[in-house]
Simulated assay, not measured.
Amino acid sequence: MSPRTRRRTPFLRWTGALPVVAVVLLILVWGRSLPAPLVGVVSLFLAGAVLAAVHHAEVIAHRVGEPFGSLVLAVAVTIIEVALIVTLMVDGGEKSAPLARDTVFAAVMITCNGIVGLSLLVAALKRKVAVFNAEGTGAALASVATVAGLSLALPTFTTTTPGPRFSGPQLLFAAIAALALYGLFVATQTFRHRDYFLPVTATGEVIDTEDHAHPPSAGEALASLGLLALALISVVGLAKAVSPTIESGVARAGLPSSVVGVVIALLVLLPETIAAVRAARRDRVQTSLNLGLGSAMASIGLTIPAVALATVWLKGPLVLGLGASHMVLLVLTVVVGTLTVVPGRATLLQGGVHLTLLAAYLVLAVSP
């Protein structure tokens, strides 16, 4: 393949063309009521944009290496997710008071139990035992548990403000703590202790290089970075475009309104889920866990400061405290996650336990 052909490849393949077409479609349908046939078309482009996002994230990850590659996808998805949350809160009024809480908690359950459990299951099916670095994964889990506890559990028990809400100073502290811990987590993952977040072999040897192909050129990586941004924008935007149809379907089925948030969270996190499963199939379990726990940390560490800032101009209360059933699920997730991480090895059982917790969360979302 000639250099010229290689430079044109990202744009000639469907993974290059589809994000552009999806963004154009997003512009055409934004703010409009969609008939059923058009919802089907939008859904197809939504699925295609998810697959394109995964492809371009993997190209970037191959160029920059781990753990930077998984960090790119996690942060990119979360920034756009935060923008979507703030936009919906601005439009939603008082009914959107628990939106940030529901979205962040959904992201925590999907990443810490869904992505982690599915990755362990896939890796264990292939190699009988999934091997990862307990030091790096343990640090990530501890960060997620701390920020989730301070941001989602603590507001339920404070007494300064009635209801599961923070007072102004408490919200400011939670926002600063979340942002500071996220910054410290990123610095630890990428610079101070980068080797803790690299894939390892069954004998404990750190894998610092990919052995299956030559890295893409800098031009290809930059092209994929731009196309990744377009794909993620289209994923979130098209998900919002079809959300009214989802809302009406949920209402007709007599389900709680929180189900809408769960469905949208599943769609938004689908690129990371697919990327994590692909990494697990290549025996890069640590990369999968970096995606799962890193996405959870990014979701809390960026969302809480963003909504705290948004309360300056938003009207109505901001509900962050979890209810009793969700509190139980959060505690179980932290305890089970700790027991999974400590040995640095996991079997089908651990993957099944995490997926069971996710299933319990989904059942309670439908039938609280």
Rank of each mutant, 00 (worst) to 15 (best):
H212P: 01
L171I: 09
A218W: 13
V75A: 15
G316E: 03
L320F: 08
P305C: 07
V116C: 12
A76P: 12
V263E: 05
L289P: 00
L332A: 15
I110S: 14
P343A: 00
G352L: 06
M1N: 05
M327H: 08
T287G: 00
I300F: 11
V129K: 08
R284N: 06
E205T: 15
R4I: 14
G321Q: 05
G183D: 07
A130W: 04
H55Q: 01
V41S: 05
T311Y: 06
F45A: 03
A275Q: 09
L118W: 04
L225D: 04
V90T: 12
A57Q: 01
R32S: 14
V24G: 04
A265V: 02
S243C: 00
A107K: 11
A265C: 09
V366H: 01
F173R: 03
A280V: 01
F105Y: 13
V147I: 15
R6T: 09
L222Y: 09
L349V: 11
A310F: 05
G237V: 05
T201I: 06
G254E: 13
A130P: 07
V260S: 05
A106K: 03
R7W: 12
A52G: 02
S119Q: 00
L322Q: 12
S288G: 07
A61G: 05
L184K: 04
Y196Q: 08
S243R: 01
T201S: 14
I60K: 01
S288W: 02
V260W: 02
P162M: 06
L171D: 06
F132Y: 06
M109L: 13
A49C: 00
G69E: 00
G261H: 05
V262Q: 04
A365C: 10
K95D: 15
T340H: 03
T9F: 15
V20K: 14
V72M: 05
L364R: 15
L320W: 02
A83N: 10
G65F: 03
A22P: 13
F157D: 03
V242A: 08
A276S: 04
V268S: 03
A53F: 09
P3L: 02
S151V: 13
E66C: 00
S295A: 10
A177D: 12
A106R: 01
V23I: 11
P35R: 10
V82G: 12
